[in-house]
Structure formats: structure tokens, C-alpha cells
């Protein structure tokens, strides 16, 4: 179980997230939605301690998440990666195993097996020796999904893994999510699109600087919420009725 309490993040003087509190149950497939600039990437980074939070706590099980980083797989937003980096698909996925063998050791046979399997699952095994710069956007996303799988983590935090992905790949990716869910993994996945696709998730977190709503897709995808998150500024309306306060910050 992931428990977030009163998380507030500022970038210098700009407020990015205010008093975010929520709970994710183990084994849930959760969508993190909100418009551009809502703070989705910021939230994911703050959960992992990649950017400092002004206040708040992030617990996984009963200990702070940042003490259990090996249990978390993180997929950065595609724009954060330099795709001209001289390396291949295989090497990128092998990064997932960095902490599984000692310094200077070559990967164990087990790691090679796991990386091969992960690439197979996302349908990228044939392209394993390709330079990453010679991949399409959707293929690049699948490489990072394979990296997250190969890490064998319990909690997956994926930042817009479906950006630049076509319908066929999208179906494949959702099938992989379902498999991972069956293995008991918890997944928090950001995306900025609003539409039928959100019905694939067990639960949605609607974010725009504050947590506007959390719940099953049908409950969340109401015209009022779309207004709140994508139309009006959130503070122009009171929206406390849609979020049960987990904590008073």
C-alpha cells in the first residue's frame, strides 16, 4: 500500500503541488490524470524523492518509500531522455539490473534471461541491438516499459508511457498492465488524455496542483470534473465534496 500525506512541492517560488493526500491499495492499476502542467511528473518525482518536497510523507508499507527504492520502477517522461545517446535497446533495459550485480561484474545469466523476457513481452526482442535513436516514439516507450518490467519491482511509477503510442501498441501495453496487476504489482501511471481509454484503470487520480478527485473512472469522468481540472482554475470552485479528506493538512 502506498500512502501519501500532505505532499507539497514548490519550484523555487512557484507552487506545483499543494497538500496532496491519497492512498493506493496494493495491486491497483491507477491512472494519474490532469492537463499539461498539472504536476503529474512533479508528483511522481516527489514520491521518489527526486525533487525535494516542502512537506509531506510518502510511505510504502510502513516505511518511507525512499528507503525502499529497489522496490520501485520509474519510467521517466520520454522528453527527459537524450535519444541521441550512443547505446542500444538491450543496454537500456539492462540498466534495470544495475543493482543486482556487484560493481564491474558482467550481468548474471539470470539478468540476461530477465531482460530477454522483458523485451519479448513488449515485442522488442528483434530490435534489441538497435541504437535507441533509431526507434519510433512508441518503440522507445516500450523499451522503457521493458526496463521497468526487468527491474522486478512491486511498485511501478510510469510517466506518460502512452504518449506517442498507436492503438495497437496501446492495446499491448494495457494487456501488459493487466498481467503485471495479476502478479500483484501496484501501478501509478500518468496520462494527460481524457477519454474512454481511462476506463482501463481501476482508479483515477485527477490532479491539477491539488488532488481534485479520486475514484473509479465512471465516478471521476464527469463534466464537472473535466471543467474543474481542464477548464476553470481549481481554486475558483470548492471541490472538497469530491475528495474525502484523508488527512487535514
Amino acid at each position: 500500500m502506498l500512502l501519501v500525506q500532505c505532499l507539497t512541492v514548490n519550484y523555487r517560488n512557484v507552487s506545483a503541488l499543494r497538500d496532496i493526500s491519497f492512498k493506493l491499495r496494493a495491486g491497483a492499476l491507477v491512472g494519474l490524470i490532469g492537463p499539461n502542467g498539472a504536476g503529474k511528473s512533479t508528483l511522481i518525482k516527489a514520491l521518489l524523492g527526486l525533487i525535494p518536497a516542502q512537506s509531506g510523507r510518502v510511505l510504502y508499507g510502513d516505511r518511507p518509500l525512499i528507503q525502499q527504492r529497489r522496490q520501485v520502477a520509474y519510467v521517466p517522461q520520454r522528453s527527459q531522455i537524450d535519444w541521441d545517446y550512443p547505446t542500444t535497446v538491450w543496454n537500456v533495459v539492462m540498466l534495470a539490473r544495475s543493482r543486482h550485480h556487484g560493481w564491474g561484474r558482467s550481468p548474471s545469466r539470470q539478468s540476461v534471461q530477465i531482460v530477454g523476457d522483458a523485451l519479448g513481452r513488449v515485442g522488442m526482442l528483434d530490435l534489441k541491438d538497435r541504437p535507441i535513436g533509431a526507434l519510433s516514439g512508441g518503440q522507445q516507450q516500450r523499451v522503457f516499459l521493458a526496463r521497468a518490467i526487468a527491474q522486478e519491482a512491486d511498485l511501478l511509477l510510469l510517466d506518460e508511457p502512452l504518449a506517442a503510442v498507436d492503438k495497437k501498441t496501446e492495446a499491448l501495453v494495457f494487456q501488459i498492465y493487466d498481467e503485471l496487476k495479476a502478479e500483484g504489482k501496484t501501478m501509478l501511471i500518468s496520462c494527460h488524455e481524457w477519454g474512454g481509454i481511462l476506463n482501463h484503470y481501476d482508479e483515477l487520480l485527477l490532479l491539477n496542483q491539488q488532488l481534485i478527485a479520486q475514484g473509479a473512472p465512471q465516478e471521476i469522468m464527469t463534466p464537472e470534473n473535466i471543467q474543474l481540472a481542464y477548464g476553470l482554475l481549481p481554486h475558483q470552485k470548492h471541490f472538497h465534496d469530491s475528495v474525502e479528506p484523508l488527512f487535514f493538512c
Binding site: 527504492r69 529497489r70 520501485v72 543496454n91 537500456v92 560493481w103 564491474g104
Partner: peptide, 23 residues
Amino acid sequence: VRLFYQELFFYTFDRLGAQAMGL
């Protein structure tokens, strides 16, 4: 460089990813 090749590769390729994994 030989000893820390993998760590340096991770750091220079995806610094946040490396940090997220606890490097």
C-alpha cells in the same frame, strides 16, 4: 571506469532514473 562503467552509463544516460533506483 571499468569498475563503475554501468553506474556511469546509467548516470550519464538517465540521471533521474539512476537516482530513483538509489544510485
